[in-house]
Write a protein that binds this DNA or RNA. Structure first.
Lengths: 248, 248
DNA sequence: GAGTGGTCTAGACCACTGA
DNA sequence: CAGTGGTCTAGACCACTCA
């Protein structure tokens, strides 16, 4: 049978029909974890298509973690292990503006120097490396939105030394300068210390959400940032990864 | 040219070689966002393989968000938008045991009844639906680890009504009972109220990390849970999605 | 040894869209 | 309207692993 595109039916790609069929069996619980999925040959016959089309459908389910493939053993429904979710951490400026508020930022302090032990550790750079340390407050309308404390490795981004961040906040500047990074995040709750309370205009020891991020580029540590959001105001939303469209 | 598997070279699949090549161009910054990637035909010629092999390589990069494909326009390097990370939220029992500590849990309260307005809203069920409300403390050795407040929709999981959770905590019980869900998470910082402070043995108004999760199965809301972790003790770790192995 | 998935080919037709 | 990606086929060979 030669290839010929959908005739009637409102043209969902063949592999997606197959994928949806399998997914519904799994998510509805008809196929419990450990259940053997029909072999690719069987599915190809059942859906009257080439095996590769089936393979593409199943491959996508593997990436989502819904099934596990093993040679000879076949494809089986995976056990849901940890709750794995996709968390989107947006650019602060975009985040504020998306909520319809006016964005601005203040540079509180700016220092170029050699990394102290603590700074070197946070940044993952050698003691005494040249660093730029910045403290910055982000505002939404007239309300403090977040406190940013950032270290930039000047070995990795020498241009930053002469950048004063008058127009563009450090995060956006770096994003444009150094696109495509790897990063690790740590998320936890902290109590506002005196400085944080003052600049964010909240009471001392108020709960805050803290996001720490270390960013690498090509295995070189580029920047470390600690963002503190006034508690209960800022909510991170994550959706379960396994369902719906894949990445974005 | 007929297909014949790797001869010399230690056999990385063809499509992965291509993918790695493209990825390194992007992550190293050689190809800035907006740069046009060679067409699939060109790449197929360049790597001496079929176009479908190239397509598979690129398809994977699309899922990771590194490139965007458009007909006629071709494939271009994507702009890194939000920092999208994968967050793993583990089963509490597994989490505690993984850290080498003894896990146990206490059921603080258990009530079967009709959903109040607040409960119905949290659960996303109709007012007056039958619900099971549970409060539960998780321990690591002799230290309180987290406070769990959970609502279970008895329309979706009627077996829960007679389950006393003597052996297995509600989360694990549900996971085994209702495999494969969809879920939404909300993460934020809160201040410990009187009850939370008492059961977690922390001072009042201490900062805590709060994770709310609403779980669906087949579009039916199954359970709502609110987990409160003593602040600064519990850290969520997330890694940037775009690099390295895909899902897990 | 036989059956499974893993990968690949050399075509093909189609749909979209930018020049 | 021409070039791009999107999808698909009907094979093929290979590697693994379980019976």
């Amino acid at each position: 049978m030669k290839y010929s595109k959908k005739t009637i039916s409102e043209s969902l790609p063949r592999y997606q029909e197959i994928q949806n069929h399998l997914k519904s069996q799994i998510l509805s619980g008809t196929w419990a974890p450990g259940t053997k999925v029909p072999s690719e040959h069987e599915l190809a016959a059942q859906f009257d298509c080439a095996r590769m089309t089936v393979s593409k459908a199943i491959g996508s389910l593997v990436e989502k973690g819904l099934v596990v493939r093993r040679r000879r053993a076949g494809t089986i429904v995976a056990a849901p292990r940890s709750q794995e979710t996709v968390l989107e951490i947006h650019d602060i400026q975009a985040e504020v503006q998306a909520s319809g508020r006016l964005y601005r930022f203040d540079i509180q302090s700016r220092r170029v120097g050699k990394a102290t032990r603590e700074e070197a550790e946070k940044l993952g750079a050698a003691l005494g490396s040249p660093v730029l340390a910045i403290s910055c407050v982000h505002w939404a309308d007239t309300v403090p939105y977040a406190l940013e404390e950032r270290l930039i490795n000047l070995d990795a981004v020498p241009e930053a030394e002469s950048e004063m961040f008058r127009e563009v906040p450090p995060g956006s500047w770096l994003l444009a300068k150094i696109p495509w990074n790897e990063a690790e995040h740590r998320i936890f709750a902290v109590s506002a210390d005196a400085v944080t309370a003052r600049v964010l205009k909240i009471r001392r020891s108020a709960p805050c959400l803290c996001i720490e991020r270390r960013t690498r580029r090509d295995s070189h540590n580029v920047t470390y940032v600690r963002l503190i959001y006034p508690g209960e105001q800022h909510v991170l939303v994550a959706r379960f990864q396994t369902h719906g469209a894949t990445a974005r």
